[in-house]
Structures are given as structure tokens and as C-alpha cells.
Design a protein around this nucleic acid. Structure first.
Lengths: 218, 218
DNA sequence: GTTATAACCGTACGAGCGACTTGTAAAAGC
DNA sequence: GCTTTTACAAGTCGCTCGTACGGTTATAAC
């Protein structure tokens, strides 16, 4: 037999090439030839690792979801030990906004997948997958906050968690559309959290101030 | 000269055929031949009214935006004269949820357009267009509510309006993905409004109860 | 009645697509 | 050292796409 190759690693490299193309041209605009070229390999080689385009698409979605979950975990762990539930929530939610190029690309890819997942059952199953988990995690954080007396108990619900996710998702959507800037979205996220946690304009705590770059043109 | 044909009407008919296809297969899945067949006309005829596919896409987006604006206006006018700002907001926001087949298709088409607008400047301009207007309108309703003492004045802001739009947009997104049901989204919208207007579980007013169809499988 | 022209229809073209097949090199197993 | 198996490369197939174009019909204008 020939040299053994790490299939998983190759597939991940190809997935990342796919994202780069999908984030600028969409999933339909990413032909196998384009992806192969972007990954610096031949079409034949790509087809050696993915027998069909759908197979590649599904794998790349699973991979990006895995990475996203990892990024969220990292963000939480980068907080001080014993962070407040509110700090955890803010870290996760702001991670869902396109505040840097990496998450911006991730969101663009996610948008491309969403548009296809709405019609494609195979992709839909994957795309749905993470949300209930995320909602449950957020709801748990809300409950912890309520126990600590930082949140009104009747707001520590799954519905409230889903509203949080939805709002941030919508904010991100409109950043990508160019309706407002990333820092505007972050400001509104903080506003939302402030209302949820019942701050009454007393100067928001537990988070760094948004810095600079005010009128920076798009 | 031959008979004069109402170009605008023909173009609208074609647009509607496009929506039907785009809502089930996406914009890339809607070929000119498919659209022509759906509209019951020949490819040649479609090309007589739209010289390129892009021209058709832009027109159809403008048309659906126009219709959506009209639907919102209708919804407001169908309320009693002198409706409360809160009732106006609820009417508009629930109109943004996929509660019936018509709005569901509209949202699917919107999603398909969004995915393309993110890359395509021409479509982006059209897709962005309505949001600031809607935000301003909502902010105005919030201000009116504050004047009437139904809302804390410091929450009558453009940011709050944008948060409202974002939340409902996100809720709709996840309905289309199949994460939750339309009536769940409506319930969370009402929850959001209740918090915004400072209800404290005292039984929500000014809106009909959501009826039946509880465990209806998807 | 002639003419000009809008309103079509049908077809064809060139490009690009995903999928498939065949060919080749090389290393692991015996 | 021969065989087997993996890892590719390259070419090709049938199809669909957006676009272009030539031809036909019908009617309004004169």
C-alpha cells in the first residue's frame, strides 16, 4: 500500500477552501473545480476525498459547527475562573457577532448554508442541530443568574434564551447586510443584556468599553 | 404597431413565478427556463420582458418589497382607528413571522435574496433599503407609546427598535429552519413586547390568544 | 393596403457544471 | 520481487445554464 494519508486532515483543508469561496460567492458559486483550485489541489484529488459535492458540503458544515463550538468554549475559558453567568452569556453572544474577519467569514458561510438548509433536508438536520443545545446552555446560565439574584427568576426561561439568540442572530444578519456596523451590533447586544438584567442606566458592569473606530467608513 | 401590452403587469406575473420557484429551490435553483415554465410562457417571451436574469432578480426583489410594505400598511389599517402604538407594533412584527403560507413563502424568498445580497452589491442596495425606514417607524411608535406613558421613555430609541426587528427576524429565521413552530415564535414575540412595555405577568392585553394546534407535528 | 414595429417563438451556442472512468506512480504487505 | 492497494491526475461524458439571434405573426399608424 502507498503512504497512509490523514483523510480527516485533508478533508478539513478542503473544507476551509470551500468556506473561503462560499463566503464570497455562496455555496452554489463554489464549484468543485473552484474549491480544488483554492485548496491548491486537482479536481481528481478532491473527488478522491469527497465522492460527491453534497458529501463535501455536509462535512464542511459539520466541521465549521465543530470549530464554532470550540471557539465558544475557548471564549468562556478565557474569562476569569468563576465568571458570572452574565459574563459567560456576553462572551458567547458577542462571539456570534461578526466582530473580526474570522467570525465574519464564519457568519457568511453560515448564511450560505442557511439558504440551502431551508430546502435541503440533509443540511437542515445539521444546521438545526446546535440551536437547542445552545438554548439550553443559555437558559442554564439565566437560571444560575437568577439564583445569584442578578436576574428576575421569571425571566430565567428557555423562551428568554431563545429570544437572546434570535436577537443576536438578527443583529449579525443586518451587519452582514451593511445596515449597521459591528460595533453598533455590540452596543445593542449590551443594551439588551442591560435590560434583561435590570440595569437602570447605572453604568454597565462586567464588560470592557467598546474602543475607538467610530466613524470608520465601510 | 402590434397590441400594446402592460409591461409592468407581465413583469409582476413573472416575478411571482420566480418567487414560487425560489421559495422551494433558491435563487440559483431558479433557471430562466423554470421560471418561464412556471409562469406558463416561453423562454423567449420571458427574455422579451427581462433582458438578463439579473434584471429579473432585481425587479422581483423590488416588487416583493413593495408588496411587503403594502401588507404591513394593510395590517395597520385593519386595526381599529386610533390603535395603540403597541398594537401597531405587534401587527407589524407578527406580520414579519411566517404565520401563514403567504408570509412563509415571502420569508423563504427573502432568505434566498439575503444569501445573494450579501455578495451582490446591486441586490444589497435593494435589500438594505427598507430597514432604516422600518426602524424609524418603529422608533416613532415607541416614542408615541412613551408619550402615552405606556413605555419607559429611555426605551423609546432607535436601538430598541432595531433590537425588536432583529429579534423577530431571528425568530422567523429559526421557524424556517424548523427549530420551533410559528406559534412558538409568536409567543416569544409577545413575551418580548410584554417585557418591553413593562407588563408584570398581569395577563397580556390588546391581543387575541393564540389558538389551538398545540402538538401539531411538523 | 402598405409599412413599421411590438410581441412573441424556437433554436442554437459556448461555457461550466457534477459525476465518472481510466491511467499511473508508489509504497506497504507477503 | 511481485502483488495489492492507495493516492492521485487527467480526460470525458451528458447535461444545464444564460444569452443571443433569426424568424413569424399581428396590429396600429398612415
Amino acid at each position: 500500500m502507498p503512504k497512509k494519508v490523514d483523510h480527516e486532515a485533508r478533508r478539513q483543508e478542503i473544507s476551509e477552501a470551500l468556506w473561503r469561496i462560499a463566503s464570497t460567492r455562496g455555496l452554489d458559486g463554489a464549484s468543485l473545480r473552484d474549491v480544488a483550485a483554492e485548496a491548491g489541489i486537482s479536481l481528481g484529488r478532491l473527488q478522491h476525498y469527497f465522492r460527491t459535492k453534497d458529501e463535501m458540503l455536509v462535512f464542511a458544515l459539520q466541521h465549521i459547527n465543530r470549530l464554532a463550538a470550540g471557539r465558544i468554549r475557548e471564549r468562556i475559558e478565557s474569562l476569569d475562573q468563576e465568571p458570572t453567568p452574565r459574563a459567560v452569556l456576553r462572551a458567547c453572544l458577542s462571539g456570534m457577532l461578526p466582530l473580526d474577519d474570522k467570525s465574519r467569514i464564519g457568519l457568511l458561510v453560515g448564511a450560505a448554508y442557511y439558504a440551502r438548509a431551508v430546502h435541503d433536508p440533509a443540511l437542515r438536520a445539521e444546521a438545526q442541530h446546535g440551536i437547542p443545545q445552545l438554548r439550553a446552555f443559555f437558559a442554564d446560565q439565566l437560571r444560575r443568574a437568577a439564583e445569584r439574584g442578578e436576574l428576575s427568576p421569571e425571566r430565567a426561561t428557555e423562551d428568554e434564551a431563545m429570544l437572546l439568540i434570535s436577537a443576536v442572530d438578527g443583529l449579525a444578519t443586518y451587519v452582514l447586510l451593511g445596515v449597521h456596523e459591528p460595533q453598533d451590533a455590540l452596543r445593542m447586544l449590551d443594551l439588551k443584556l442591560a435590560h434583561l438584567f435590570g440595569d437602570a442606566g447605572e453604568g454597565v458592569e462586567g464588560q470592557e468599553r467598546v474602543k475607538g473606530r467610530e466613524g470608520a467608513g465601510r
